[in-house]
Simulated assay, not measured.
Amino acid sequence: MDPEYAAALASSAENAPSAYQSASPTIEELRAAFVQAVTIPNKKYHEERLPPASSYVVEDKLIPGPGGDILVRCVVPVVPSDAQKFPVLLWIHGGGGCVGDIEIDDYHLRRISVDLQIVTVNVEYRLAPEHPFPAANDDCYAALKWVAEHASEIKSDISLGFLVGGHSKGANFAAMLAHVARDDPFFDGRQLTGQLLREPAVVDSESDSVPDEYKADYKSMDENGNNPPITRAAIKNLRRMQGAPPTDPRYAPLLYPSHAGLPPAYIQVLGLDPLRDDGIIYEKALRKAGVRTRIDLYPGVSHGFHMSFPTIKLAEKGREDVLKGLNWLLGREAC
Rank of each mutant, 00 (worst) to 15 (best):
S152W: 04
L89V: 04
E4N: 09
L262H: 10
H93L: 10
V57P: 03
P25E: 04
E333F: 01
P185S: 10
V291F: 07
P129N: 14
Y298M: 04
K43Q: 15
S209R: 06
D105G: 13
L275R: 09
K288G: 00
Y141M: 08
A252R: 11
D277N: 11
P25G: 05
L323R: 15
I280L: 14
K284W: 00
G97T: 02
I280H: 05
E206S: 11
E103M: 06
F133I: 04
P80W: 08
Y251H: 15
P310E: 02
P249A: 11
K284T: 06
E149D: 15
S168Q: 09
I267V: 13
T293F: 02
R332Y: 00
E29K: 08
L30W: 10
G325F: 07
R250N: 09
E283D: 11
A178G: 10
V123C: 14
A181M: 06
D217G: 04
L326W: 04
V164A: 13
I154N: 02
V99R: 03
F162Y: 15
N226L: 10
P310A: 01
D139K: 12
K43M: 14
I70H: 07
I27R: 14
I158D: 06
G304A: 05
S81W: 04
V88K: 11
F305D: 02
G225W: 11
L89S: 09
H179A: 15
N237K: 14
V38P: 00
A174E: 06
G170D: 08
V58N: 12
N137S: 13
P25N: 06
S54E: 13
W328H: 12
P64F: 02
S152G: 08
I158S: 08
H306D: 09
E206H: 07
D277S: 12
L326P: 03
L270K: 03
L262K: 12
M241F: 10
P264C: 12
I70A: 07
H179Q: 15
P228K: 12
Q195L: 08
I112P: 01
D296M: 06
E47N: 13
L160V: 05
D248I: 12
R294Q: 12
I104G: 02
L163D: 08
G290M: 10
T231A: 07
V35F: 02
L30Q: 14
T247L: 00
Q268F: 08
D208C: 03
Q117F: 01
G95K: 10
K317P: 01
W91T: 06
Q268D: 05
G95N: 09
A136T: 06
V269N: 04
D60Y: 07
I158R: 15
S302W: 05
F173L: 15
I235H: 00
G318P: 00
A142W: 03
E320I: 03
S113T: 03
K61I: 03
E153W: 08
H108I: 01
L50D: 02
D138I: 01
T120N: 07
L89F: 09
D101C: 05
E149I: 08
D278M: 00
Q117C: 02
L71I: 06
A233E: 13
D321R: 13
A151H: 14
W146C: 07
P228L: 15
P245M: 11
I92N: 14
P64E: 04
D138Y: 10
W146M: 02
E199V: 13
